[in-house]
Amino acid sequence: MDFAFSSDQDLLRETARNLLARECTPSVLRGHRDDPAAAAPLWNHLRDFSALGAGPTVDLCVFAEETGYVAAPGPFFATTALFQPVLGAIGSGLADRASTGEITGTVALAGADGFWTINKDRVKTFVLDADTVDVVALVEMSDGGGASVTLLEHPSARRVETIDSSRPVFEVDVTAGERIPVDADVVDALVARATVVLAAEMVGTARRLFDMSLQYAKDRRQFGVPIGSFQAIQHKLADMSLDLERAWSAVYYAAMALDADEPTAYRQRAVHVAKAAAGEAAKRAAKDGIQIHGGIGYTWEHDLHLFIRRAYASEALLGTTGWHHDRLGDLLFAKR
C-alpha cells in the first residue's frame, strides 16, 4: 500500500496546474457562459493530454483534480473519461484519433431517470457537451439483454438548462445507425471508472472552494480580528478539510483498485465510496464556503458561485451521493 505519487505523476500535476491557472481563469468561465467558443483556446491546450483517457486511472485522476480546481469547460472530461473507453470497448478505429485529441466525443447513456444504468429509453439525458463534440456514442440496452453502441456524428441535441454553464448538458434522441454489440459488464465498468474520475474532479472543485474560504477567513477582519480566529469559523473549516482529505483518499484508493484489477465487488464498493465521499466534501465546501464569505459570497460578481455551481452539478451527475450510498447498501446486505 503506497499513496505516494511517482515523479512523473508529480510532474503531470505541476504541468496541469500551471497550464490551467494561466488558461482557465474565472473570466474564461464567465465568457464561456455566453459563448461556448470562449473555451476553444483552452481545448487547444488540453487536447495534448487526451492520451490520458487510455492510460491508468490514477494519472487521469491527477489531471482531473486540476481541471476540477478551475471548473474547466470543454470536452476534456467527456472525451477522456467516457468517450474513449467506449471506443476502446467496441474496438473502434476512432480510438487512436480520440487519444491524439484529433476528435472529441461524448456518451449518451442515462435514460429518463438521469442515472447511468443501461436502458431502453428513447431519449438519452445528461449528455455532456453534445453541442461541441464531433461524435456522440449512444449506448443502449439491446433486446437480448446485452448492450450496443451507435456512433452518431453531430446528432441534434436539446440543451437542458442547469445551474452550471461550465458543463452544458443535452438530451439526445435515439436514432437509427449501426448497432455495435458490447458486453454490458464492460459498459458498467467504464461508467464506474468515469465516476471515479468525476469524483477526482469534484475533489479539485471542493479544494478550490476550501482554499478560497480559508484565505478569506485569514484576510477578512471583523470586531478588530480576522474572522478565522473565531472558533465557529475555525471548526467549519476543520470539518471542511476533513471531508476533503477523506474524499481525496477515497478517490485515489478507488483509482488504485481499478488499476490493480481487484475483484469486482471490491472495486464496486471503492467506486461508490469515492463518489459519495466526494459528494459530501463538495457539498460541504460549497455550503460552508458561502457562509464563511458572508454577503460577498452571495454576489454574482464574486467568483465563488462559479465553483459552487460546478460542485452541485457534478454531485448530481453519474449517480448522486444518495444513489451511491444505496448501491453500497445493496452490496453490504447482499454479502453472505
Partner: peptide, 12 residues
C-alpha cells in the same frame, strides 16, 4: 462510506 474513506485517509 465514511469508515472506508477514513481508512484510506489513514493509509495516506
Amino acid at each position: 462510506q465514511r469508515a472506508a474513506s477514513l481508512s484510506a485517509l489513514g493509509y495516506k
